[in-house]
């Protein structure tokens, strides 16, 4: 059992949870994730570790209500227990001290970008950050990132905050002006693909962090497989970071849709939890 220490609503659909998980808190590194299974009938889903505190024995996750599991998770309260959490899983970020890095995050992916940005800064890199969301009320963690760079560019689809448009606009502008040593991108698949197309034009090495459907997350089932170059990789143990220019996004995005029908059925059935909103 893993006790929820605190829970905050960041915006109408995104939540932050601090959870007691002493073993995981001792071991977590930036870029890793945990597998969460809320109750005995639940599914196992991967969630990025946003923060961890070895001394307090806690980890922090930030998640967006999307499917049945995240919607159920959002209904849990402080002091409730999550039955199963396992981790930390995946390889820690491969970012090293390379000089100038441009980091791009979108949607709830911004929560995954923050620990990477913190770490990249800590080991001595110079950062520029672009974050994007659909609208102002869905934009998260802007203040956290402001502390890490003087160059934070915000975009929203509707222009309600920052520049109107997609992250690729300011990205292209920046890359035309100056030279970066590395790009790092995490967000919706379609955004990562667009970012990779842009950075490819500038021949800029780009790391993407994929969020695949998983079950065991230890390399046992292969449900999270993705083509990288000419090789099949497992996102859970070989990733979640990959060379974005080699990822077959078309195939990956098709795979991500394979349980769409079932996911809809699951959502319509609603959650099992007793507590009401």
């Amino acid at each position: 059992m893993f006790r929820i220490v605190s829970k905050d609503k960041i915006n109408p659909v995104i939540h932050k949870m601090v959870i007691e998980a002493p073993r995981i808190a001792m071991k977590a590194r930036p870029g890793q994730f945990v597998m969460v299974m809320i109750d005995d009938k639940g599914e196992r889903i991967p969630l990025t570790i946003y923060d961890h505190d070895g001394k307090k024995g806690t980890i922090t996750i930030i998640f967006q209500e999307a499917g049945k599991t995240t919607k159920t998770l959002a209904k849990l309260k402080e002091s409730d227990n999550i039955v199963n959490i396992a981790g930390p899983l995946g390889r820690p970020t491969s970012i090293k001290r390379t000089g100038k890095i441009i980091l791009i995050g979108g949607g709830v992916g911004i929560a995954e970008l923050v620990p990477i940005a913190r770490y990249a800064k800590e080991i001595g890199n110079d950062l520029a950050i672009i974050i994007g969301a659909r609208s102002k009320d869905l934009l998260i963690l802007e203040d956290e990132l402001k502390g890490l760079t003087e160059r934070l560019i915000v975009t929203t689809d509707d222009g309600s905050c920052g520049e109107k448009g997609l992250v690729t606009g300011p990205l292209k502008r920046l890359l035309e002006k100056e030279k970066f040593n590395l790009a790092y991108c995490v967000g919706p698949d379609i955004m990562m693909r667009a970012v990779c197309r842009t950075t490819k034009e500038f021949d800029l090495e780009t790391i993407v962090s994929l969020d695949a459907n998983m079950i065991d997350a230890t390399g046992m089932c292969g449900t999270c497989r993705v083509m990288v170059g000419s090789e099949t990789k497992f996102t859970c143990v070989d990733g979640p970071e990959f060379d974005g220019h080699k990822v077959d996004f078309a195939e990956f995005m098709t795979r991500q849709k394979r349980f769409r029908k079932e996911e809809q059925v699951s959502l319509e059935k609603g959650c099992r939890c007793k507590s009401k909103m």
Binding site: G42, E43, R44
Partner: peptide, 14 residues
Amino acid sequence: MKAYLFPEYDTPIT
């Protein structure tokens, strides 16, 4: 994951 009892259990299978 007992997908044969989906949607009572949450894990799907085609």
